[in-house]
Design a protein around this nucleic acid. Sequence first.
DNA 1: AAAAATGTTTAGATTTGTCTAACTTTTATT
DNA 2: AATAAAAGTTAGACAAATCTAAACATTTTT
Lengths: 219, 219
Amino acid sequence: MNLTVAEENYIKSIYKLEEGTEAVTTTGLAYELDTKPASVTDMAKKLKEKKLIDYEKYQGINLTAEGKKAALHIIRRHRLWECFLVDKLAFSWDEVHELAEELEHVRSEKLISRLSDFLGNPTIDPHGDPIPDAQGKMGKQRAQISLDQARTKRLEVTAVSDKSAALLEFLNAKGIRLGTQLEVIERYEFDNSIEIKIRNQPAFTISEQVSKNIMVRPL
Amino acid sequence: MNLTVAEENYIKSIYKLEEGTEAVTTTGLAYELDTKPASVTDMAKKLKEKKLIDYEKYQGINLTAEGKKAALHIIRRHRLWECFLVDKLAFSWDEVHELAEELEHVRSEKLISRLSDFLGNPTIDPHGDPIPDAQGKMGKQRAQISLDQARTKRLEVTAVSDKSAALLEFLNAKGIRLGTQLEVIERYEFDNSIEIKIRNQPAFTISEQVSKNIMVRPL
DNA sequence: AAAAATGTTTAGATTTGTCTAACTTTTATT
DNA sequence: AATAAAAGTTAGACAAATCTAAACATTTTT
């Protein structure tokens, strides 16, 4: 199955949206891809033709088994390149997403399998997301919840669900990265902001929006 | 200056042809890019518009200073990726050209400068070609001639001018790589084939076409 | 110097991916 | 249930990059 770069990006975004909600809508996908609903409808027809999605007019979009497999391969490439950029080229986690978006479209089984070997066959990427194996099987994400839902005080950061440079830069500045251990000092109900503390540093407050995107596990 | 992938490929091919001959013709460029002369004419107009080439109807194509600079940056990216694939991912020299053709189009100064550092800032690629530096300056190719023109018997292989997998595979099979030292046993005038010998291995004969593409320096 | 051959350009079409504007369907509200 | 709002689709257009076929220009041959 030979996909264009545009098709790969659609498949990847559909996969991402499917993970969260059940129905992938035309408008939601357009927003995710920073394009227009009309363009999504056009592409949906092509992807249906290629049997990568199930699609009926006005009924939303879902990946077929084949589409899901394609998505996992793209995600594998993306995450391996992120590992390469961070581990070998010393990029920080907030810089790698855009570059990996480009590198992921170089399609070569051999390249990716060698890259994976070279990196020591990592199973999670720099944002804490699992890396699918060559067969497209992805280790289950460790049981994790977002910081805004956690109900224990001592927590460890396991992943970040929004990969925008804006959020990652913010976390960097605050000293929050994968594996960071933090303590919840206070939860403010009026705006759902949370006061947290890392090690011996002074406590600080983060908004609900930020806390929703930090995934944690209880310590 | 933001170039499309197609534009980058044209610039690179024009540079390559300019190195050899003086005038780059529409047909010659079409052949190099495996496309049609009409397509070349179309693109020539665009590249002229962007001031990357000098072009007048029926008068052939030449890179401007700016075009040359762009070409050298693309070549730098290409050759660094080739180094990465061979040195780090254990590809052999006959496999890397096509992959590097894709990787070279990921445009990021930072990525390339980090990659270069990671590789130890190499100055020649796996085929013996010099790698331009970040400013686009390229170390002069060591004085070298093709094997068919060499007039001494003991020679060292310094580069290969044709990067087709076909030739490189052949050389691989015969044990010829960069740095290989060989001895010319006999030159046959009727077809310009050459009998050569590597170290203690039995002598074998190569055609004129092959010998024209092996660059050597006298020992 | 005219004719033939070769090389180059133009015109018009095609494909991919996108858009806007108008229209249709679905969903939500009263 | 009727209607308004939101979501989704279609039709027609456009830009990039390509193609074929025909026209045009240059070079080579006779």
